[in-house]
Amino acid sequence: MKSIKTLAAVAALSMISFASFAQTVSVTANTLDGAEAKIAAQAKQQGADSYKIIEAFNGDHVHMTAELNK
């Protein structure tokens, strides 16, 4: 039983530390390529190793949200 509690605690702590490195950014542009270029520029500026686009909306303009990972 003690090992199950320890495993649960380690799993919870590992998720907290992983989440602390992620940051969300949002941009707007006229095209999808323009929005992704802005996301890439922000990722580079903030020293992120990678980014993952988690949302994009195309109406009169493009709104894009991405998660930056360090």
Rank of each mutant, 00 (worst) to 15 (best):
K2P: 04
L7M: 10
E55W: 07
H63I: 06
G59L: 04
Q23F: 14
K5C: 09
V27Q: 01
Q42M: 01
S3W: 06
D33K: 12
T65V: 08
V10Q: 15
D33V: 07
V10N: 15
Q23A: 15
G34M: 01
S17W: 13
A19Q: 15
Q45H: 08
G47E: 03
D49S: 07
A8T: 11
N30I: 11
A40S: 11
L7Y: 08
I4N: 08
G59C: 06
S3I: 09
I16S: 13
I53C: 01
A41P: 02
A66W: 07
S26F: 06
L7A: 13
A43P: 00
I54T: 13
F57K: 12
Y51G: 00
E67K: 15
G59I: 01
S17C: 15
S3V: 09
D33M: 11
A22K: 15
L7I: 09
I16H: 14
N58W: 07
I54Y: 06
V27G: 02
V62W: 02
A35C: 02
A11K: 05
T31K: 07
S26C: 13
A35S: 03
M64R: 05
A22W: 15
D33T: 14
G59S: 11
K52A: 04
T65S: 12
A37M: 12
K44I: 12
G47C: 01
M64S: 06
T24R: 14
L7G: 10
M64W: 05
S26T: 13
A40N: 04
T28R: 02
K52V: 10
Y51C: 01
N58S: 08
G59M: 06
N58H: 09
A22V: 15
E67G: 11
M64N: 07
E36K: 09
G34S: 04
S50D: 03
T28S: 04
Y51R: 00
S3Q: 06
A19T: 13
A40T: 09
L68N: 13
Q23D: 13
F57M: 09
M15H: 15
F21M: 15
A22G: 14
A9L: 12
Q46V: 08
A43S: 02
Q42L: 02
I53F: 00
F21K: 15
E55L: 07
T24A: 14
A9G: 08
F18C: 12
Q46G: 05
A35R: 03
H61Q: 09
I53A: 00
T24Y: 13
H61S: 07
V27N: 01
I54F: 05
I39H: 07
G59A: 10
M64K: 04
D49P: 02
I4T: 11
I54P: 03
F21R: 15
I4W: 10
L68F: 08
G47Q: 01
Q45Y: 04
A41G: 06
T24E: 13
L13E: 14
T28D: 03
S26H: 04
F21A: 15
V62D: 02
H61Y: 06
H61L: 05
T31S: 13
A22S: 15
F18L: 14
A56H: 08
A35W: 01
A35Y: 02
A29E: 02
F57R: 11
S20V: 12
A19E: 15
A11C: 05
A43G: 02
